[in-house]
Structure formats: structure tokens, C-alpha cells
Design a protein around this nucleic acid. Structure first.
Lengths: 235, 235
DNA sequence: TTACTATTGTTTCAATCAGAAACAATAAAT
DNA sequence: ATTTATTGTTTCTGATTGAAACAATAGTAA
């Protein structure tokens, strides 16, 4: 990671990313733990002067998940004043390098742009960055207290995800390339937090006309084998 | 307006507001014209170090429209790199005050948070700010070339408005306190850009259960008089 | 081979909703 | 009283949705 002492970053501007994954049962997000302080927080970062906002977030995502080409979308920008906590920032940073000048840009007020990403849980090997001790998955229904307003950011991201679930079958981004109808339904249920009717779910998904049916998946169960589906590539 | 020479603003951060009004026939937005240069642009501004993002936008809105307590919502943050145009900024600013130091923060790259506002067209007397010659209404289907990426911002705002039209009857914010069903339908049609079926529209709106019916409006037409409606105040 | 079982894909049936048209009411002008 | 334009409501039909029943089938066990 770049040395933050160097200029080259836009001051006062940060991003926070809510990275969703589906474990096969539960919807989860990635949280990092800052050096020494023990603070849990969303993976975030800063924007270089010569890169786009989107590029900055993609860069951070690649560093932490090793994944490129993933679904990524901005959902809200957080600009309240309570987001300045020079004491905490100092603690976090001092664990990493020499203490900073009193007026360093990192100790100032930030506005943060919230992004959410949808990734294939099994494809990623989360790796902590220079400022964090660990990075781990947490179920969205068991999120502990987070740094700053990050709990609020998670809530907003979840709201956004729920209300936009249907558009273009967003949720397939949480599954591998090919998946069964049951898996798709489980993702929906994990995101919405409620059970759905099986027959109606299948009818609705198929009626969208954007799923392609492939060969069956013989998983060894003593029952009818389900078809595999993928997103139809648009013409 | 505050002198921009003084510090007290967050550098690199701006907002642009898309202010919608309904003329009784067409959906319109407010555009300003910058001093001398003739550039048309969205009304925007900067954020003070001790104010919230929302507060900053409200402040600018109050100055330009005289309106307080209006519907205001953030919809997207624009962070591309092409948003830096020191030449144009210099032109605009030099028309207003002495020339600026080469490294002035106003000449730097900005990230801009887009807000949209819905206001009662007839209640507002638009007033230009210190940097603009004029502020006027323009139909959304006849927007001329604007500064920077402002045409794109307008497009995004319209998209957002269209897809969120139904939630809590957003569009009533474009009408006076009391309105007829026909007026409400006309707002919908102006926003969506298509004609709607009268009977179904009325049924749908009433079924939402959030409209209160008041006395009739005798407007002098030789036909049945329409009822006036208002948004039901929530219990 | 032949039941048996669990799961999946599909169909059916009723209830609800949505789009189009017809019908009914009415305020003002003639 | 008649006419006209507009508004409020109902009716009819077809589409959509929710719940349950039915049908197919891959493995297991007798």
C-alpha cells in the first residue's frame, strides 16, 4: 500500500466498501480489524489525484480480495460531521508508523462515498492491508459495533441491496457462474430475510427470460437432480 | 455569499443540485448562467468545514429559491477525472474578483455530490448568486449544453426520479398543498414522459391510502368539479 | 428388480390486480 | 330544460400471484 505521507491523494475524501458474500447459508460482509486498537471497520481507502472514484474502489477491492471484474456499485455518500475522530485516527496510524504532524490530512474531516460489491464467497482469499491485523466475514445479522458511522453505512447498503434485488438479477453476482434454482432462492431469502414460495420463485425467475438452463447437477442425492443455470449473455 | 478566498470550505468537494419544478404543463429545472462566460450550469456550491453535506445543499437552496423545508435527496456522487477545468474556472472567477493564485483550491479537481430537490414552481422567485448573471427554468426535454458533466448529472437525476416516483408519492412535492387528481396525473406524465390511463391512475392513487380528500374546486368550468386532495399526515 | 424417499419441475385453481371501456354525476353555458 | 365537457366510479376481461397438488427422477434399500 502506498505511503500515506506522500501526497497524491485527495484530502477529505474517502470511500467505504460493503463487500457482500453468500456462504451457502448466510449473507456476510467483510470487516477489517485495525492494528492494536482492535477497531472493526469497513474496508475503505482514499482516492488518488489522477484516478476516478470508481478506479480507487476497484483498486482497494483487488488488493483485499484478489478479485477483478466484480460487481461494484455506489449507493450513498456520507457527509455528517461526526465522522472526524482525530484521536482514533492517530491511534490507528501510530501503530503503523511514526506519529504524524498535528495538521496531517488524515486527521481531518472526511466525506465518504459508500460502495457495495457482490462477490463469490468461495473464490476469495481475503488479505489484510497495511493498517489492519485481520479481515474476516461477518453475518449481516450479527454485525458488531463498528468504527465511526460504519454500522449505519452497512444498514444503508443492505437497504439498497434489498430494494434493487430484482433488477437484472443482481444476486447472481453472489453465486458461481453456474448455480441451481435452489441456491438462487437461498440467496434471495438470505438478503430479504424471509422464506419464499418455491414454485412461484421458479416461475418468476424463469419468466424474466434471462436465465439459461444447462445440464443437470448430479450431486449424489437420492432424488431428482436439479438443473444448473447461468445468466444469459445479452445479445 | 461567502468570499471563497477565505478558508473554511472543504477543498475537492462540491455539490450540484437539480431543482425540479412543474409549470402546470412541463417538468423543468433551474439553471444558472455564469458571469461573462455565458456557461450554463447546475446551481452548486461547496461545503463548509463545520457543516453537514445536507446542510450545505440546503443553504444553497435557500439562497437561490428563498425556500426552506423542501424535499431534498442525494442521488449520486460524480468522481470522474474530466471534471477539472482550471481554464474555465479561472474565467468564471476572474469575472468576479482579482485573479487567483495558480494553486488555488478552486482550480483543483473536484468530486461532486448530486442532489435533487422538488419544489412548488409557483412559490419560488429564483435569485442568482454572486457568480451568476441569471437563473432560469428550462424544460427537461430541452436542456442545452451545460458546463462539465452537468448534462450527465441531469440525466442521472431524472432516471432516479422516474424509478422512485411511486415511493410515498414523491411527486406531490412538486404541487401546492392541495391539488386535483388531474394535476397529480399531469405531474406523473411529465416525469415519465408518457400518457397514463385516467381511471386506473385514480384507482391506484386512492388505493395507496395516503391521500386525503377535501372540498371540491369550482374553477368555473362547465362540468363536474374535481375534488382537492392533500397528502395525509401520517399518524 | 422393485419399492421407497427426498427433492425438483410443472400444473392447477382461486384470488387478486391491471388495462380498457362504459356508465354516472355534475357545473356551467345556452 | 338542454347541452357539453370533465370528473368519479363501475364493469368486464385478461394477466399476475399465492398456495397447493401433481409428476418426474436419482439414488437407497429390500
Amino acid at each position: 500500500m502506498a505511503n500515506l505521507e506522500t501526497t497524491g491523494f485527495l484530502p477529505h475524501i474517502a470511500y467505504d466498501s460493503v463487500i457482500f458474500g453468500f456462504s451457502g447459508e448466510k449473507l456476510k460482509i467483510l470487516l477489517i480489524e485495525y492494528h492494536k486498537t482492535g477497531w472493526l471497520a469497513l474496508p475503505g481507502g482514499f482516492v488518488k489525484v489522477n484516478e476516478t472514484l470508481d478506479e480507487a474502489v476497484k483498486r482497494g477491492l483487488l488488493e483485499r480480495t484478489g478479485l477483478d471484474q466484480i460487481f461494484l456499485e455506489q449507493f450513498y455518500t456520507f457527509g455528517s460531521i461526526e465522522r472526524v475522530r482525530p484521536d482514533i485516527m492517530k491511534q490507528i496510524l501510530s501503530a503503523h508508523q511514526e506519529d504524524l504532524p498535528k495538521d496531517h490530512w488524515l486527521l481531518d474531516r472526511f466525506i465518504s462515498i459508500g460502495y457495495y460489491a457482490l462477490i463469490d464467497y468461495d473464490k476469495v482469499e481475503p488479505t489484510p492491508d497495511a493498517f489492519s491485523d485481520s479481515i474476516n466475514w461477518y453475518s449481516v445479522d450479527e454485525i458488531p459495533d463498528l468504527l465511526f458511522d460504519h454500522n449505519f453505512i452497512v444498514k444503508k447498503a443492505l437497504d439498497h441491496l434489498r430494494t434493487h434485488l430484482d433488477q437484472k438479477l443482481l444476486s447472481v453476482n453472489l453465486l458461481p457462474e453456474r448455480f441451481t434454482m435452489k441456491e438462487l432462492q437461498q440467496v434471495y431469502e438470505a438478503i430479504l430475510g424471509e422464506k419464499l414460495n418455491r414454485a412461484n420463485f421458479q416461475r418468476k425467475m424463469l419468466s424474466l427470460g434471462i436465465l439459461e438452463r444447462h445440464e443437470k447437477l448430479y450431486a449424489g442425492g437420492s432424488h431428482k437432480a436439479p438443473y444448473l443455470y447461468s445468466l444469459k449473455k445479452k445479445a
